[in-house]
Design a protein around this nucleic acid. Structure first.
Lengths: 142, 142
DNA sequence: CTACGAGTTAGAGCCGACTCTAGATCAAGC
DNA sequence: GCTTGATCTAGAGTCGGCTCTAACTCGTAG
C-alpha cells in the first residue's frame, strides 16, 4: 500500500473517483488536470488530496455534460492563475445555465414519459390481450 | 411542395423534428421507427402524422439518454403488437426511473457548481488581482 | 532469486451516434 | 429538352470519450 509519504496511487484514486486508471491517465494527457501530478520513485503517480478533489469536480462536470475541451479550458484558467478569473466565472456560469436548462427539459420529458406509461397501463388494464395497435402509441389526443 | 396526398416529405419532417434528413434515414435503417414509412411515386418517403409523432417521441427519448437499441426494442414491441405489453411497460418504467435519477444527480451537481461560482465570485470581489491559487479551486471546507 | 501485481509509456482500437459522399433518380419550372 | 433542387441507396468517414494492448519497470512476498 503506497501511502508511503502522502499521496495516493492511481489505483486508489480510481477506486475513490469511480474512473478507471486508463481514464485517469487519459485525462492527464488531455490536460484536464489542474496541476501536474507528483511522481514517486520509479516515476509512479502520487495524487494529492487536492488532485483528487479536482478529479471529483471533473467527474461532476462530465456528468453534467461538459465536454473535455471545456474542462481543459477551465483547468488552463486555473493553471495560469491570474487575469482570467472573469473568463473562468463566465465559463462556469454558462455551464450552470446549461445544466439548469437540461434539468428543465428532462423534467418535461419525464412528464411525457410518465403520461405515456399511464396510457399504456390503462390500455393494458381494461382488456388484457385486447385492442392492440401496431401504429404508434396512443397519443394523448383527447 | 409534396403535400400531394397526405404525407410529408423527409425534408419537411426534418424541419418539424429538428433531426437532419440523414438522421431520419439512419433511424429508419436502424429500425427505430415503429411503422414502415409509406413511399410515394419514385420511391420517396411520405411520412404520416403518426410517423411524425413517433419521431417526436424518439427525440424525447434520445434527449433523455435512451440509447438507440432500447428505442429499437420499444419499436419492436409496438410492431409485434401483442403479448409483450408488460415488457414494453417495464422498459418505459425503467427509463422513467433512470430519468428521475438523472434529474436528481443533475440537481445535485447544479448545486455544487453554483457554490463553486459563489466561491470564485467572492474571491474575485475582495481583492481583484488578489490571492491567486494554482492548486485546485477553493473547496467549500467551512 | 523469482514471481507477481501494480505501475509506466505510446499508440491502436472501439463504440455510439451521427454525418457525409457519390452517383443515380425524379418533379417542376423555364 | 434542360436545369435545379430535393430525394434515393449504399457505404464510408467523423467525433467524442474512453478502453485496451504491448512491452517494459518496479517493489515486495515467499
Amino acid at each position: 500500500m503506497p501511502e508511503t509519504n502522502r499521496g495516493l496511487s492511481i489505483g486508489q484514486v480510481a477506486e475513490l473517483t469511480g474512473l478507471s486508471v486508463h481514464t485517469l491517465r487519459f485525462y492527464e494527457r488531455e490536460g484536464v488536470l489542474a496541476a501536474p501530478v507528483r511522481r514517486g520513485p520509479g516515476g509512479r503517480r502520487l495524487y494529492s488530496k487536492s488532485d483528487v478533489e479536482w478529479i471529483h469536480l471533473c467527474v461532476n462536470l462530465r456528468a453534467t455534460g461538459m465536454p473535455l475541451p471545456a474542462i481543459r479550458q477551465y483547468a488552463e484558467f486555473i493553471r495560469q492563475g491570474t487575469g482570467d478569473e472573469e473568463q473562468l466565472l463566465a465559463l462556469l456560469r454558462q455551464h450552470r445555465d446549461q445544466v439548469a436548462t437540461q434539468i428543465e427539459q428532462l423534467t418535461e420529458s419525464l412528464g411525457l414519459i410518465t403520461r405515456k406509461i399511464g396510457a399504456y397501463a390503462e390500455q393494458l388494464a381494461r382488456g388484457a390481450g385486447g385492442p392492440v395497435r401496431c401504429t404508434p402509441p396512443p397519443a394523448e389526443r383527447r
